[in-house]
Structure formats: C-alpha cells, structure tokens
C-alpha cells in the first residue's frame, strides 16, 4: 500500500518533469525540421530529414536563394547580431549594477556618515514603485536625451542600481565579521582599500547570486528594449523574436525559423543552468522567504 503511494507520487513528479521539458524538446525538434516537412512532420516525434539549415539561415549564414528555399521570407534577419546584443545587454547590466550596488550596500552597512538611515530608507522606498509607473517618464527622458536605439539608452535605467540589489547586498555586508575589516584598516587601508581588498573578495557568493538573477532578469526583459531598442543595431533576442513573428505571414508562420530563434534564446540560460544550477536553485532558498 505504502509502496503504491510512493510509486504514484514519483509518477506525478515524472509527469510534471515531462510536461516541463517536452515543449523544449518540441522546439528543438521543429528547429531541426526542414520547412518543406513542417506539415508532413507536424505530428512526428523526430524530423524525417533533420537539418541545420534553419539555424544557418536565421544566423544570416545562407544566401538569399537558400533562405527562400528553406522557407524564409527573405526579410533581413540576423540572429547572430541579436544574440550578441542580448549578451551585451544582460552582461553590462548584471556586472555594473551588481558592482555599483555592492559599493552602496557596503557604504550603508559599514561606513559612518550622517543621514545614513534616512538615505537608505529613501532608496529602499523605490521598491514600492511598480515599474510601469516609472516606465513612461523614463521613456520620455531617454527620448528627449536622444538615446533611443542606443545601448546607453537601453541600459541606463538599470545599470546604476535596483533598490533590491542595494538592499540585498547591504544585508550581506552587515553579516560579515568585522574583525578582518578592522585589521585591514589598522594595516593602513582606507575605506576603498578595505572594500576592494577584503570585503568584496569575501562576498563572492552573494555577488554571484545577485549577478545571476540580474542576468536572468535582463535576458528575459522585453518591454523596455521593445520601446527603446527596436532598431537592428540594438535589437535584443526577445524583441527580434516578436518582430520575426509579426513579419512572418499570419496564415503560414515560419515556424521552423521561429523555433530556431527560440532555441537560441534558451541555449544560454540552459548553459547557465548546467554550470551554475546548484547556485541558482539554492539562491531561491537564500533570498527567499526567511
């Protein structure tokens, strides 16, 4: 009786896992299918004639005739560029935001200055402002500064800070032992020296955690890049996929190409999961409800 219960519990978990992963399998399966087989293979678990041509054509590695023959519309798409743009966008935001927020978090946790609690309270109050409320004025600001379709305009609102990262890192610095820092001070280090040579190296874990979540957030970001970086030179993957869907004919969407593009947007986070999965999973405990 108990055995049956355990077995059926495992069965439910297995079903959940299949439901979670199958759409990704179907995405890759479709991306490897020649457009000519889309209809014939639409119920097949494996492509009858597997091909890499869909990846090659959305990366701009085929000639126009080859692209047309493979089911593309012939419209210019260059996913190599969008992939690079996405990497630059999330990489820039994750590294610089984490660094700046670490500086501020350290100052709020360790340095003594008048008004510390007050300034911290004001910065943290920004957590209460939902993104949509600042989105419209920020767009107007970036537009008035003539930064539409520039990387600077795209990263500007998030590269300097998010209130959450400041809060999170301050909490961490508060928990660090003081003795090491005091010793470094007595050795003649100024505040910057202590921060750079002692506190930062001791904070690798939390820095990676916040950097990772920021990377994922920026990788998924859609609305802001859609408003500010629609043009080729700044178009990120999410925006490019939306444009691709819009451009492909409504009656016969270019699904093999779209799924190849989707696969490109999944691959980097899959790598992240494979190499840093343990940390990602544990960060949910760490930053979670405690």
């Amino acid at each position: 009786m108990r055995r049956i219960g355990t077995l059926s519990a495992w069965a439910v978990l297995a079903v959940a896992l299949v439901l979670t992963l199958f759409p990704f399998y179907w995405m890759v399966r479709t991306a490897l299918t020649p457009a000519a087989d889309l209809y014939a293979d639409s119920g097949a678990l494996f492509p009858s004639h597997p091909t890499m041509v869909n990846f090659l054509r959305i990366l701009g590695l085929t000639t126009q005739e080859e692209t047309r023959a493979a089911g593309g519309s012939g419209a210019r798409i260059d996913f190599a560029r969008y992939l690079l743009n996405s990497v630059v966008y999330s990489g820039l935001i994750a590294t610089l935001q984490t660094f700046f927020c670490a500086m501020a978090g350290y100052a709020f946790a360790r340095l003594r200055f008048p008004g510390r609690q007050f300034v911290f309270g004001v910065v943290i109050a920004a957590l209460m402002v939902p993104p949509i409320f600042t989105l419209l004025p920020n767009f107007v600001l970036v537009k008035n500064l003539d930064l539409i379709n520039t990387f600077l305009g795209m990263v500007a609102p998030t590269i300097l800070m998010t209130p959450f990262a400041v809060f999170f890192l301050r909490q961490f610095f508060l928990s660090l032992p003081r003795d090491v820092e005091e010793a470094a001070r007595l050795d003649g280090n100024g505040p910057w020296g202590v921060f750079w040579r002692v506190s930062l190296p001791m904070s690798r874990g939390p820095l990676i955690t916040i950097g990772l979540t920021t990377t994922v957030w920026a990788w998924k970001d859609y609305l802001w890049p859609l408003l500010v970086g629609r043009e080729e030179q700044t178009r990120v993957l999410t925006v490019a996929l939306g444009v691709f869907l819009q451009q492909s004919p409504n009656t016969r969407p270019d699904w093999t190409g779209l799924m190849a593009g989707s696969t490109l947007s999944v691959l980097p986070v899959l790598l992240l999961l494979i190499f840093l999965g343990r940390r990602l999973v544990q960060s949910l405990n760490f930053s979670g409800i405690k």
């Binding site: 959940a16 896992l17 979670t20 992963l21 759409p23 990704f24 994922v216 990788w219 998924k220 970001d221 859609y222 993957l237 999410t238 996929l241 939306g242 989707s262 947007s265 999944v266 986070v269 899959l270 992240l272 999961l273 999965g277 343990r278 990602l280 999973v281 949910l284």
Partner: peptide
Amino acid sequence: RAMLLLPWLVPNVT
C-alpha cells in the same frame, strides 16, 4: 529542481 526551474529562466516571449 534545476530542471523544473528551466521554464522560469526562459524569456516570456519565447
């Protein structure tokens, strides 16, 4: 747990 987390890591657009 890592596998169950995958859909959350993927852009909503995808």
